[in-house]
Simulated assay, not measured.
Amino acid sequence: MTATTSSPRTPLWWARTGARAWTCAPVPRDVRAFHAALPGYAPTPLTELPFLAAELGVGRVFVKDESSRLGLPAFKALGAFWAVHRVLAERARSGQETGPVTLVTATDGNHGRALARAARLRGQHAHVLVPEGVHPRAVEAIVAEQARVTEVPGPYDEAVRRAARAATAPDTVLVQDTAWPGYEQVPAWIVEGYTTLCAEIDEQLTAEGIAGPDLVAVPVGVGSLAQAVVTHYRGSATDSSPALLSVEPDSAACVLESLAAGKPVTVTTGGTSMAGLNCGTPSSLAWPSLHGGLDAAVAVSDAESARAANRLATLGVPSGPCGAAALAGVRTALTGAGGEERRRGLGLGDRSVVVLLSTEGPAANPYAEAAADR
């Protein structure tokens, strides 16, 4: 295992061997069927970008474009819709009141908006707490879904703590996309929902005559999407066992720092345009999967994410700072000083297939629009 710190020439990087031998249980098969039955469902595009393949020195590069998912500009709807479905089903099964409840969460934007949409469509209420620094237009988008919004004077982790307290009121349920000891069932449902994205990738690659990817790069906040990716590719549901790379802001690299330490740690976060990744503590539910199944982790700067978003835009893929982090991370991993060593460690060659998860469109993150305006 290796870990290096950032400098002008050395990326913030962690890697180890043996991750592809780690295994876990697969997700329930009914998750994909649930999403496929939703009004307006369609697989999001998997766009091949030959110019990027040439730039990165690999065989083929595909971008999973989540800029429009179930009418929202990010992948988060997959987890929120499935979790709300399971929450309400469990309440009905246990004989609890079937009247409207208030679904509570903390968010940097996309999860809260998705939860508010799911609540509105199911005739429920939503209370969304947002941390300091979330763009006013992101708040407005949540309010437009008829949710109550509370702005918290503190970072994301403080908003999560306050959401948990708010959800102790009668007729409320916490639907949070991060977990901690004692709160893991609902986050597990959210993770299950995200795996539909990976199932679509498998089908889309198969249609291209490709057995599976050799590398998947995934942006990371608390690690729930990365957990879904690890679960899909390390579970028995698929024979593909690609290298898995997590990408975080260098100002909020809680997963990378935890992997380097060998245990979950909390980092002090700073401001970043990658607002949805600005998290200081890994999800306790995600941690075992991240620790066991990730091959490598890298942290990137806002400038690197912005350059990646601009490059994707020139190639016809709309992406916000969080989504573009995947490309920024792969660029950092495969190029520059030490790139050849990192490439060998990931098992990549000139015929390898790389999949980048672009988790949001520009509309999901107003900071992307502000950067473009400047």
Rank of each mutant, 00 (worst) to 15 (best):
G349A: 11
G57M: 07
E192Q: 15
V139N: 11
V354K: 02
L327T: 03
T4V: 12
V128N: 07
A252D: 07
L315P: 00
A308R: 07
P362G: 10
A313S: 13
R69S: 04
V222H: 02
C254P: 01
D214Y: 03
R117I: 05
V84D: 06
G109K: 07
A25Y: 01
D350W: 09
S6I: 15
V130D: 07
R162Y: 03
G221A: 09
L315G: 02
N310R: 15
P155C: 08
G329Q: 00
V247E: 10
A303Y: 06
D295K: 04
V130E: 01
V149G: 04
S240W: 02
C322Q: 10
S289N: 14
E304V: 08
E90D: 14
F81P: 02
V218R: 02
L327D: 03
L225D: 13
L245P: 01
A328K: 00
A333W: 00
A53Q: 09
A118W: 04
A54Q: 15
D350A: 15
A211I: 11
R137P: 03
V229K: 07
D295I: 00
L348I: 12
H111V: 08
A260R: 08
L38A: 15
W14I: 03
R86K: 01
E257F: 09
A36W: 11
A114N: 08
A333S: 00
G361S: 09
L215H: 00
S258Q: 05
R343I: 12
P131L: 02
A118N: 02
S319R: 01
L12G: 13
W287A: 12
L225I: 12
V317Y: 06
V222R: 05
E257Q: 11
R161V: 07
R32T: 14
Y194H: 05
E203Y: 07
W14S: 06
F51E: 10
G293T: 10
V354P: 04
A106D: 12
R351M: 04
D214L: 04
Y183W: 13
A368G: 15
R113I: 11
V143I: 13
E360R: 04
T17D: 15
V104C: 15
R161Q: 12
V186N: 04
V229G: 14
V229S: 04
V186G: 07
L327Y: 01
F34T: 08
H232T: 14
C254N: 10
L70F: 06
L205A: 13
V191C: 09
R343G: 11
P8M: 05
V104W: 14
K76G: 06
F51V: 10
V175T: 01
A371Y: 09
A19E: 08
L38F: 13
A363Y: 03
G339Y: 09
L285K: 09
G59N: 09
T168I: 07
Q96P: 04
V220C: 06
V247Y: 01
E140A: 15
A147N: 12
E200R: 08
R307G: 06
T314R: 13
P39S: 05
G95V: 05
D214R: 02
D108G: 08
R374D: 14
R9F: 14
T98H: 11
S273D: 14
L52A: 00
F75K: 03
Q146M: 02
A313T: 12
V317I: 02
T4S: 15
E208Y: 07
A116Y: 11
P73A: 09
A3P: 05
V300M: 06
R137M: 07
G361A: 11
E203V: 10
T268D: 12
T272I: 00
E369R: 12
T266Q: 07
P73M: 02
V355I: 00
T272C: 05
Q124N: 05
